[in-house]
Each structure stands twice: as C-alpha cells, then as structure tokens.
Amino acid sequence: MSTSFKPLGLAVALALAGCSQAAPSADTADLAPPADTATEAPTTVADAAPAAEAAAVPAPQLQAAMRDLWHGHIVHARDYVIAVHAGNDADAKAAADAVVDNARQISGAVAGFYGQAGGDQMLTLLGGHWGAVKALTDARAAKDDAGATKAIDDLNANAAAIAKFLAGANPNLPEDTVHGLMLAHGAHHAQQINLILADDTAGEAQEWAAMQAHMDMIADALAAAIAKQFPDKAS
C-alpha cells in the first residue's frame, strides 16, 4: 500500500462496513437481514450519503484507496470459499494468508494515523471478522450446523465491536448505523458461502456483482464522511 494513503487508514477501515444486497437464506436467519441497498446508497448515513452521491468526489484519492483495499478483502475471502469447496488446501491457505495480509495493510494504515494502539485494535477486530467468516466457511463445507451457528454468533458480536470502534473514531457515523452495515456485511459473506457450496453459479454471480457494487457505494459514502472529519488530510 502506498505510504501516501496511510493517513487515510480509518477511511479504509470503515469500508469494512460495506455490504452487498441479497435476501439472506435460512442459514443466515440469525444475522440481521440487509436492507434493500444493492441499488441505492445507504441513506441512513445522513452526512455521508449526500456527499457520496454528488457529482464531484470530495476526496478522490481517499475514495480510491478505500475501494481498492476493501475489494481486496472480499476478493480474498471469496477465493477462500472457492478453494475450500474445491478441496484445494494449498489455494485455501494462500487465500487465507492474503486476507490476513490485507487486514495487516489496513491496520498499518490506521496505525499511521491513530498510532500503534489504534492499528493494533483494528487488526484484532479484523482478525475476529475474518476468523468468523473462515469458521463459517469451514463449518458449512463440513455440514457442521453447530459450528456454523457459533460462527454466525461470532460475526454478530464482532459487528458490534467494530461498530463501536469505528463510530468512536468518526463522529459522522452513528454506531447503530455502522452496526447495521456490519451485520449486513456478515450476512452477505454467509449468503455467498452458501451459494458457492451449493454450486449455484448464477446465484453467486449475481450476489458477487451486488457485493462489489455495494462495497463501492459504502466506500464512497464513508470517504465523504472522513473528508468531512479531516478536510485538511483527505484528498
């Protein structure tokens, strides 16, 4: 990651709240169902959404950095599910390592702006998010319902923890809003896992397209919120 993006670390971290849109299956019933946001911006982020929808992007470099790193998160997580389903241990390990490396980049960026303690906290939270997604993938692949239920519970708990951290760092993003976005993000990971393991290629392709598009929407809205919080640093 370019050092020029390090002061934008919080914005990158906030994009974790991004989620795609599709109705969760019965397997994700314990996660809060995402709102119908696949084709519209998250209007609950009152200060961020109008700026994100504006023709002029207030902080284009920030926006680009957020999109790039958070696309990495969902790409590598998806690669892990595909490899597990194929029974390819080497590819699964490589994908898992890539998710962790991506989390370290994000956390390093946060540390460059908020200090090492902030970076360490972000890494711990991202580790909890990925640990739950990985556990859910493994449990579903093994048809372990109890393991899957625990993983979903862990995703929910982690969503609350991330929301508290991010809302505390950015006053323009209410904790309840970020919490809802994180729950939806987890639900979409779960939905994608189910579709891949079910060999539903068409369904997963639709989910994947929505996931990427909505990740951009959330990243753009959050970039606007960070630009408002740090107008002298976001560019």
Score class of each variant (00 low, 15 high):
residue 1 M to R: 13
residue 2 S to Q: 12
residue 6 K to R: 15
residue 8 L to W: 01
residue 8 L to P: 00
residue 9 G to R: 06
residue 9 G to I: 05
residue 14 L to Y: 03
residue 14 L to T: 02
residue 14 L to A: 08
residue 14 L to H: 07
residue 16 L to Y: 07
residue 20 S to V: 01
residue 21 Q to L: 07
residue 23 A to H: 06
residue 25 S to I: 11
residue 28 T to Y: 01
residue 33 P to Q: 04
residue 37 T to Y: 06
residue 39 T to E: 12
residue 44 T to Y: 12
residue 45 V to Y: 06
residue 48 A to W: 00
residue 49 A to P: 03
residue 49 A to V: 02
residue 50 P to F: 07
residue 50 P to T: 02
residue 51 A to L: 12
residue 54 A to D: 03
residue 56 A to H: 10
residue 57 V to Q: 14
residue 61 Q to M: 15
residue 61 Q to Y: 08
residue 65 A to P: 03
residue 65 A to C: 10
residue 75 V to S: 07
residue 78 R to G: 09
residue 79 D to N: 12
residue 81 V to R: 00
residue 81 V to D: 04
residue 81 V to L: 03
residue 82 I to D: 01
residue 82 I to Q: 13
residue 86 A to Y: 12
residue 86 A to M: 00
residue 86 A to F: 14
residue 94 A to P: 03
residue 99 V to I: 14
residue 100 V to N: 05
residue 101 D to F: 09
residue 103 A to I: 15
residue 104 R to P: 02
residue 109 A to Y: 01
residue 111 A to T: 05
residue 111 A to K: 04
residue 112 G to A: 15
residue 112 G to V: 11
residue 114 Y to R: 13
residue 115 G to W: 14
residue 116 Q to M: 06
residue 116 Q to V: 09
residue 117 A to K: 13
residue 118 G to Y: 02
residue 118 G to Q: 10
residue 122 M to R: 03
residue 124 T to I: 04
residue 124 T to L: 11
residue 127 G to M: 01
residue 132 A to R: 01
residue 137 T to V: 13
residue 141 A to C: 10
residue 143 K to L: 08
residue 145 D to T: 12
residue 147 G to Y: 01
residue 150 K to C: 00
residue 155 L to G: 02
residue 155 L to T: 08
residue 156 N to R: 11
residue 158 N to Q: 05
residue 162 I to R: 05
residue 164 K to R: 09
residue 166 L to E: 04
residue 171 P to A: 09
residue 172 N to L: 08
residue 172 N to F: 03
residue 175 E to T: 04
residue 178 V to N: 01
residue 178 V to E: 00
residue 179 H to L: 10
residue 186 G to D: 06
residue 188 H to M: 15
residue 188 H to L: 15
residue 191 Q to Y: 11
residue 194 N to G: 09
residue 199 D to Q: 14
residue 200 D to Q: 12
residue 202 A to I: 09
residue 207 E to S: 07
residue 212 Q to S: 15
residue 215 M to V: 14
residue 216 D to H: 10
residue 216 D to F: 07
residue 220 D to V: 03
residue 226 I to F: 06
residue 226 I to L: 14
residue 229 Q to C: 09
residue 231 P to R: 02
residue 233 K to H: 11
residue 234 A to Q: 01
